[in-house]
Amino acid sequence: MGHDHGATVSPSENMEAFLNGLWKQNPVFVQVLGTCPTMAITNSARNAVAMGLATLFVLVFSNMLISMVRRLVQKQVRIATYILIIATFVTMVDYIIKAVSIDVYKALGPFIALIVVNCIILGRAEAFAGKNPVWQSILDGFGMGIGFFIALFCLGSVREILGAGTLFGFSLFGSNFQPWVLFLLPSGGFFTLASWLLVFAWWKERGKAKEAQA
């Protein structure tokens, strides 16, 4: 994020903007941002997917619009402008989900509107889209959005598999499986995210240890 992008952008830099959010700066697992929706609605894989797509939509479009107007925005009112733009796309996604499926809308409830205060989105606006050209900002939005999507899916699928023995509503283990209800409960959200963070921390440590050996 620290480097200053010039007027000409090489394809590799585009790729970097995209991959950054996917893995190295994964918003949930590495930056631990946007944790509220991450745990609140991930008790099933379907909800996780819906939330991930909604956030991706908001992230990409708000990044795009913010980057388009970035030269006009004065420093003093930039946060207000960003929030206004983000809230607009959130309102849009709220209506779109309601129009597509009432079931999903009921399951996500006020958490769709709460995308407004998802720190990831304002964070990307401030750290990236407000300083970079449109095309790269869109890619950055895609990368971060998909990174968030993957994180939600990791949590949602683990919780649904362990807590209900199903994935996307399909039974996985047959009728003899005694579901581990704890994982559907709120505390299961905390435990699952904590475990994923441990996995990621362990992964990083291992990489560092290997580098040190070599």
Binding site: L185, F190, A194, S195, W202
Partner: peptide, 18 residues
Amino acid sequence: NLAKGTALVLMIAGTLSL
């Protein structure tokens, strides 16, 4: 070391939530 920070807080929060 691995568990220090957020992971530990989340674990405690999970127990509290229970």
